[in-house]
Amino acid sequence: MLDDRARMEAAKKEKVEQILAEFQLQEEDLKKVMRRMQKEMDRGLRLETHEEASVKMLPTYVRSTPEGSEVGDFLSLDLGGTNFRVMLVKVGEGEEGQWSVKTKHQMYSIPEDAMTGTAEMLFDYISECISDFLDKHQMKHKKLPLGFTFSFPVRHEDIDKGILLNWTKGFKASGAEGNNVVGLLRDAIKRRGDFEMDVVAMVNDTVATMISCYYEDHQCEVGMIVGTGCNACYMEEMQNVELVEGDEGRMCVNTEWGAFGDSGELDEFLLEYDRLVDESSANPGQQLYEKLIGGKYMGELVRLVLLRLVDENLLFHGEASEQLRTRGAFETRFVSQVESDTGDRKQIYNILSTLGLRPSTTDCDIVRRACESVSTRAAHMCSAGLAGVINRMRESRSEDVMRITVGVDGSVYKLHPSFKERFHASVRRLTPSCEITFIESEEGSGRGAALVSAVACKKACMLGQ
């Protein structure tokens, strides 16, 4: 009897593995994704193909990295998701002549009506938060230079001027797309009239992360975010950046690689679950690469896999709870928690219980395998993109072996128990001629924006502006 049951459990697990095998990517698959990513990057950089390229390769006008001589107080704003952060950054000489960066910050959550109302409502709310922060720190009387981390696709015309191309991540505030974001912020500050600010720089969160990590390690020339969304930036040779005049030196390019796949480059790798996630998203047909990796989508992918296993009578005796059938019910943090389970399955059992399920031991094991399959594919897909960037940098610099540091931020990278190990191992397999160091950014977005502002202020002083 026991043997029969054991055989049935083994057969069930084997069927589960057959279904989950769809998520496995072979090294040849990853090399294919990497080569296609490089081709799209090239198209994004070139003037004649930029418009139709899915990977936009947006110039950021960040050319210099901090040298350690900029000092002063800077205000930093960070808008990239449902939370908005205001930070005071003091850049100065530390002990023994070292450079020191001290920060104080406060988080504000953005109400739904500000995210989806008008641009005026959104930026009025942001300036209200700045006003509140300055009151708390008794700094209303000071006109501070301000660095703005704005983590949406922007076409820069200068370091302090950028046109919002399109909202992502659930934002829909009308009247912002096609307009200068810094102008919208300046107008809102003017409307309030109770404080003055000098907006000197606007950067993407990947750029802010790279600059913040450069402060720790001067070989950091790539910034990457794996959180709600997924994106990367890197220092490109100016001669390859056709959208900006000049051939000397390097400029940081914001790849906006989340949109890779929007022209069909990933079609052969998309599964039924991916198509369902895409169809029910706020932007169907867009940001397809990001939807395979980002935390906004990972939990939902797992939920759809679990429903398939229920329908195949391989999980929960073929019956799903009402909660499990509800879109968004299986949160991405559950994926991390399930994979963090120590082996007694308590954590998995508790999560499934909150979803109205009474799982068996085998159910718990199957749910864990589903989570591992989805998150491992995410790590491997992400590795193909980064390997594409790094191999490109090595080739354009004609280096036999390139040493490089990548600064990384984002909740999936930082909080998932195995993502970074799987990701690092896969990147290294795909970049055999590179020695890569990964560092995690601390308060990256805010500190990085302030350091970019410090560079901009120093330049302005040198130019006598």
Rank of each mutant, 00 (worst) to 15 (best):
S373E: 13
L292W: 08
I225R: 01
T431R: 04
S69C: 09
R36L: 12
E421S: 10
N254E: 00
L271C: 13
E128F: 12
R155K: 00
L134E: 02
C382W: 00
K136L: 07
Q26W: 14
I163Y: 04
G147Q: 05
S441T: 13
F133N: 00
Y297I: 00
G285F: 12
H424G: 10
K102D: 15
V389D: 04
V244H: 06
K32A: 14
E319P: 14
D4T: 14
G183R: 05
V226T: 05
I439T: 06
S54W: 06
H156W: 01
Q18I: 06
L2P: 06
L324V: 11
G72I: 05
L352P: 01
I390W: 03
H141S: 05
T405A: 15
A425H: 14
T376P: 06
G170K: 01
D365P: 09
V154Y: 02
S263V: 10
D158E: 10
G448M: 02
V253I: 08
S76Y: 03
Y125G: 12
L79D: 04
S69L: 08
L25G: 07
S383A: 10
I351S: 11
K420L: 06
R250E: 14
T326E: 07
L288H: 09
M107K: 05
L30D: 12
H380W: 12
Y214L: 15
S418A: 13
I348C: 13
K459A: 15
I436S: 10
V199R: 02
W99G: 15
G388W: 00
F150R: 02
G117S: 13
V91Q: 06
R191Q: 01
E268M: 09
F423L: 12
L266Q: 14
Q286C: 13
A449C: 05
G92P: 11
Q219D: 15
I404H: 09
C252G: 10
T103Q: 05
E421P: 10
T228P: 05
A201V: 09
T82G: 03
E279R: 15
R333W: 02
E300T: 06
V71D: 15
T405Q: 12
F84T: 04
A379C: 06
L165V: 07
G170S: 01
A188F: 00
M224R: 15
N166D: 03
M402E: 13
G44Y: 02
G464C: 06
H137E: 09
S76D: 03
T209A: 08
E256I: 00
R369P: 03
H105P: 08
A10D: 08
M298S: 11
L88M: 06
G356M: 10
A379N: 04
N254S: 00
F334D: 07
S151H: 02
A176P: 02
L30C: 07
S109G: 04
M41C: 09
P417H: 11
R43H: 07
P417Q: 07
E395I: 15
E339G: 05
E216T: 00
H380C: 12
I126K: 00
V374E: 01
R403A: 12
S100L: 08
E268H: 12
G94R: 11
V222G: 00
Q18P: 07
P111D: 12
N179V: 10
S263Y: 15
M238R: 09
R392E: 07
S280C: 11
R7K: 12
T60F: 01
N166S: 10
V427E: 01
D365M: 12
V71C: 15
S383K: 04
L45R: 04
M121A: 12
L20V: 14
Y273D: 06
H380F: 11
L292R: 08
L2G: 12
M393D: 00
T332V: 05
I225D: 02
Y273T: 15
K169Q: 04
V408I: 10
E52K: 11
G318V: 13
V412S: 05
L77E: 06
G227D: 00
M34K: 11
D365H: 13
M298H: 13
L301I: 08
R422C: 13
Q239Y: 03
R308M: 11
G227R: 05
M34R: 09
D344S: 11
E372R: 12
Q337Y: 09
Q26T: 07
F150G: 02
L276I: 02
G246Y: 01
V241D: 00
D400E: 10
A329G: 14
C252V: 15
P284I: 10
L270Q: 12
E331T: 14
M210A: 05
A449L: 02
G318S: 08
K56D: 05
V302S: 10
S54F: 06
V389A: 06
I293K: 05
G81W: 02
E399P: 07
I436W: 04
E96S: 12
E272Q: 02
L75N: 02
H424T: 09
E399Q: 13
S64P: 15
S174I: 02
L355Y: 10
A320H: 08
F260A: 07
V200C: 12
K136W: 06
S212K: 07
N313C: 14
S418V: 10
A384Q: 08
A173V: 03
N350H: 09
L304P: 03
K414Y: 09
D217N: 11
V89W: 02
C371D: 01
M41Q: 10
G223N: 00
S281N: 13
S76W: 04
V16T: 11
V452G: 03
L144H: 10
K346I: 08
K136S: 08
R429A: 13
E272M: 06
H156N: 00
G448V: 00
E339H: 08
V335T: 08
E40D: 13
R46V: 06
S127M: 01
R5S: 10
M298T: 15
S280K: 14
A188P: 05
E17H: 11
R345Y: 06
L45Y: 01
V62H: 05
E245T: 10
E27A: 07
M202T: 03
S360P: 14
E28M: 14
G318A: 15
E442D: 15
V181R: 00
Q26P: 14
E112H: 11
E96C: 12
E128P: 02
E435T: 11
A282G: 14
I348P: 07
G94Y: 04
Q323V: 12
I159C: 01
G285W: 11
K161A: 13
D274N: 14
M402S: 12
G385P: 04
L134C: 05
C233D: 01
